[in-house]
Design a protein around this nucleic acid. Structure first.
Length: 629
DNA sequence: TTAGGGTTAG
């Protein structure tokens, strides 16, 4: 038979596909430890079980049992029947099992064909063993089997999931140009997914149009890949446009695509758009599932829209879409964060009543709630309880507890937890180290905080912008502005994108150290650095000017803020009022108090403290207090 | 017609 593969193509494959590795080294332990028992228990006619309608509800145990029946029956089943079974197991994502069974067949003298070899190429690619996939490809070609579009698409997937995206692009080009294959929607979709994986979003989107030009229409899965890639990058507008494009192309989006977009809308703070899309899918007759509800419920809780989220919860129960562990975790997390601990515990009991097992997320949320509301004892009990339930704490659990201890000024115990964590083989991450650094600074232990930071660097745990900001804040608050400035200058030279929080920290540090002019320079330069000052920046700067008795300059900045800056908040007004009172400017203070009250803000504790003191020593009279009520 | 692509929630 005339082979369709050209000689260029063969050369390409030889040149590009290394001939390394040995498929015989594939993992086979699975069969040895697990397979035999299953073989022994299997019974019945394999042919009947292999019939199509039976295959879809086959369990892994049954499939392995079936394999046992097949290798024992005589005459041996055809290779087609074996590939049917192997593909079912591959669809269960049990790639190592497929490989083991394939090896077993080989040992029994059952030879493979194009289809079974293709299945192995696919399985090796999925289990990140690209070199073995290439070895199988080499072997099948030696035996005279030609890889076809399906085999090469599997390989393409392997390139995409390793670091070889350029090989993936080249392979598709070669398939089209040199090999004379016609890549289909699956081939293109695989490559599009690979491009997203390698952060080449625009190339991925462009390829959707190019595949259409090549006469290959994107299908539901293609759109699924693109929508997912786009949503991960937060471009919800483009995702919604794609949804319209699908409609035009008469491809009906499925619930997963809607869920993906709803999730992204929730994450990127377009809650109402998410609710609109939810209604739209109802109108289109696409039934939401538990994921749809979970996205919306936890998002609504997050924004304090408790009533709406409760309504959705009862709505889903009414529609027999059962809440699962994620539903409860979302609710418990939101209640715990809000300090509604009784409700959180009630939900925890309810999930157990519904026989839904709590998992590490459940425990982490509850521990967080207890820690943040100063109930350390309860948090530790819960920690011990989860361990007793064989739910092993992770770095997040430890970080939550460490933060809780630090918050209660028990940083030594936090440090102890950190050591315990490391001893148990849980490595500290950026958050864990940062939490501890912050704890030591808050405790006034500047030296130890810096030591932890050094340890973090030597352990090669990357510091985040948050880590640096906490470090700068700690140094500034402990009278080490100079040291902070050195680090800050290094940061400005580095690739870290400094945000307004870091600038606020430095402006505050400079002002508190009396270097108001330097702070003012930094403040004026924010525009050049592409960062917009926020209400805290203005308030800090105004406060710094007041501290230097430059009250007229502070007033001017306050006016500028009201003209073209962020709206002053309670903190701005209170700070300015105190500054004027200290300066003996009663009339100006009175004016500010009225303005503040007309904006709906009230005097805060510091302001009342100052006013009380001034009443005592007679600098103010009682009538002044009436202005606040 | 036995083989290849995406899958969202804490």
């Amino acid at each position: 038979m005339e082979r369709s593969i050209s000689s260029t193509a063969k050369r390409f494959v030889r040149r590009n596909l290394q001939w390394k590795g040995n498929p015989r080294t594939a993992p086979s332990s699975f069969i040895h430890c697990y397979g035999r028992r299953a073989f022994a228990s299997a019974s019945g006619d394999y042919r009947e079980k292999l019939s199509r309608n039976r295959l879809s509800d086959l369990k892994l145990d049954d499939a392995i049992g079936l394999f046992g029946d097949m290798v024992q029956s005589r005459p041996l089943p055809s290779i087609v029947e074996f590939s049917k079974l192997l593909s079912v197991i591959a669809k269960m994502k049990k790639f190592d099992v497929v490989i083991s069974l394939g090896e077993k067949m080989q040992n029994l003298g059952i030879s493979h064909d194009l289809f079974t070899y293709s299945i192995f190429v696919n399985c090796f690619c999925h289990s990140s063993q690209l070199s073995l996939a290439l070895a199988v490809l080499g072997k099948m070609m030696k035996l005279g089997y030609e890889p076809d579009v399906v085999t090469l698409s599997s390989l393409l997937n392997g390139f995409c999931h390793s670091k070889r995206i350029s090989d993936a692009v080249a392979l598709v080009d070669q398939m089209m140009v040199a090999m004379g294959y016609k890549p289909d929607a699956v081939t293109f979709t695989t490559l599009i997914h690979g491009l997203f994986l390698h952060n080449k979003a625009s190339e991925a989107v462009a390829l959707v149009d190019r595949m259409a030009e090549k006469g290959c229409q994107p299908d539901l899965v293609t759109y699924g890949v693109v929508v997912n890639g786009i949503c991960k990058r937060g471009d919800t507008d483009l995702a919604l446009n794609l949804l319209k494009k699908m409609e035009k192309g008469k491809i009906e989006a499925d619930v997963v695509i809607y869920n993906t977009i709803i999730d992204a809308l929730c994450k990127y703070k377009h809650v109402n758009d998410a609710l609109d899309l939810f209604n739209e899918m109802e109108i289109k007759g696409i039934r939401p599932d538990v994921v749809t509800y979970n996205c919306l419920i936890s998002c609504l809780c997050h924004y304090g829209r408790w009533d709406e989220s409760a309504r959705l919860l009862s709505d889903m129960i009414e529609r027999k879409i059962n809440p699962n562990v994620v539903t409860f975790n979302g609710l418990i997390d939101a209640f715990a964060k809000e300090g509604k601990l009784l409700e959180a515990e009630k939900l925890y009991k309810e999930m157990i009543q519904r026989s839904i097992d709590p998992n590490i997320f459940t425990y982490n949320s509850l521990i967080y709630g207890f820690c943040m509301h100063n109930r350390l004892k309860k948090a530790k009990d819960m920690f011990a309880f989860m361990v007793s339930k064989d739910c092993l704490p992770d770095v997040v659990t430890y970080s939550i507890l460490i933060k809780g201890f630090c918050k209660c000024k028990r940083v030594e115990e936090g440090m102890e937890l950190f050591r315990e964590m490391s001893q148990r083989g849980v490595m500290g991450d950026t958050v864990a180290y940062t939490t501890l650094i912050q704890g030591f600074f808050q405790n006034g232990d500047c030296e130890y905080a810096q030591m932890v930071f050094k340890q973090m660097v030597s352990d090669r745990v990357p510091a985040s912008l948050m880590t640096y900001t906490i470090l700068l804040d700690g140094l500034c608050n402990n009278g080490k502005l100079e040291k902070a400035l050195v680090i800050f200058k290094d940061m400005q030279k580095s690739e870290i994108e400094i945000d307004i929080f870091t600038y606020n920290t430095m402006i505050d540090g400079m002002c508190k150290a009396g270097k108001v002019e330097e702070a003012w320079d930094l403040f004026c330069n924010l525009g050049f650095k592409g960062v917009k000052p926020n209400v805290v920046t203005y308030t800090t700067m105004i406060s710094g000017l007041c501290g230097k008795r430059l009250v007229h300059k502070a007033d001017a900045l306050f006016r500028k803020m009201k003209e073209d800056g962020p709206l002053p908040d309670s903190g701005t007004y209170n700070m300015l009022i105190r500054a004027h009172l200290r300066d003996g400017k009663k009339a100006a203070s009175a004016e500010l108090i009225n303005e503040m009250r007309s904006c709906g803000f009230a005097g805060d504790a510091s302001t009342f403290g100052l006013v009380t003191n001034m009443l005592h020593d007679g600098r103010l009279d009682k009538s002044f207090l009436d202005m606040f009520s």
